[in-house]
Design a protein around this nucleic acid. Structure first.
Lengths: 207, 207
DNA sequence: TACATTCTACTGGTTTCCCGGTATATTTAT
DNA sequence: ATAAATATACCGGGAAACCAGTAGAATGTA
């Protein structure tokens, strides 16, 4: 037991794990103690071990990174997770933060940035790179409409080519009700027909 | 000048570069001589230096990896490029190969696989991982419909919410003509309404 | 409890879409 | 030069979507 900061890496790309190890090896205070390529293994270990900082990729093969983050944070609220991804997708970053991540990095981060992020998160603070902050700021401007459960359900049925009548049959609803939902969807997205609705929904990653 | 295989890495993620270096350091016959984080710099160097194997990421900040591959291969046909990406997108892999890449790796490759790929490519052969081969095979099964110029044009107007009449006005066509094109589009995608058409078109990366 | 949201459903009317055909001129490829 | 693909355009008719407005019931929340 020494006073180094314990680093746990969860990423399915061996070359990224190696890269992180190599970048972090320059900082004596840090020590990469465990690496996992599968979310399941990481969960098993981390649900029983507190302390340290977890560098976690969002795109894991077996489990969604966001879910994993959620689970870990509820089992072990002290856990310090630093999300990572190649994609600078605002909605993912938001979700990640909402689920308890203490910071977020895009993978083109430099060693300095990486270290700064780890240091901040370890101390109990948070860390978001300028780039990530910019993305979050931008995304908060264009407000993504909040859809209800029913609306999401009907939206995906519209996308798969079902007509109002077919959707009504499938969900045991009046076609008039389905139509109302479709109209509400179009209104929420500010469009005036279904093709544009589908386009917008996909653009906003809701399909 | 020794008889090692010269490796050039082009990737905008410092941690990936480090990871590759670290993974390759176990093979004495390989020597990472140059690394570039920008496509422009890589182009300048590589257009004047033959030999070795280039590990190139597709997602570069300043230039499209596919374009870069194309340019390099026309300037320097002997060049041996090994494409890399986190995304296992069939159309990108296909394009890359078409533009002259000798192999393709997904970034979760192991050190062994990486070495095998480099060895094959260096010898003048090609290398595609089982995973990549699977993706290519699968993508050749589901045939992506070929759209004409007019169809693409009308498709994107439908996606942006224009009605048949509006499209006709915009393109100086009869609405009946526009409708024919829309019908042909739906037929090509095997769907029976416009929302499903848009979904399919986006799924096939045609929008 | 009171308020807000969501889900449900309706009337009546207009517009657009979708279908089954057909057909000609223009490009493009062989 | 000849075939194939593309782009253009039409008819008639039925189905579905879209619009404007209203409103009760269920659910959740303060």
């Amino acid at each position: 037991m020494n006073n180094k900061i314990e680093i746990i890496i969860v990423d399915d790309h061996p070359m990224v794990i190696e890269g992180l190890k190599s970048l972090l090896s320059n900082y004596d205070i840090l020590s990469v103690t465990h690496t996992f390529t599968r979310g399941k293994d990481a969960y098993e270990y981390l649900s029983a071990h507190a302390g340290g900082v977890v560098l976690m990729d969002i795109n894991l093969p077996d489990i969604n990174g966001i879910e994993l983050c959620d689970k870990l944070c509820s089992v072990n609220p002290v856990i310090k997770i630093l999300g990572m991804s190649t994609h600078n997708d605002a909605s993912i970053i938001k979700q990640m933060v909402h689920k308890g991540a203490r910071g977020y990095l895009i993978k083109n981060a430099s060693a300095e940035e990486l270290y700064a992020a780890i240091e901040n998160v370890y101390k109990g603070s948070t860390y978001f790179s300028a780039e990530v902050q910019g993305i979050l700021a931008e995304s908060s401007l264009k407000n993504i409409p909040r859809l209800t459960r029913r609306e999401k359900e009907i939206l995906s049925l519209i996308a798969s080519g079902e007509t109002t009548q077919q959707i009504a049959d499938k969900l045991y609803l009046s076609p008039l009700t389905v139509e109302t939902h479709r109209r509400n969807l179009m209104q929420k997205f500010g469009v005036s027909n279904a093709p544009a609705l589908i386009k917008m929904a996909i653009d906003h990653k809701l399909l």
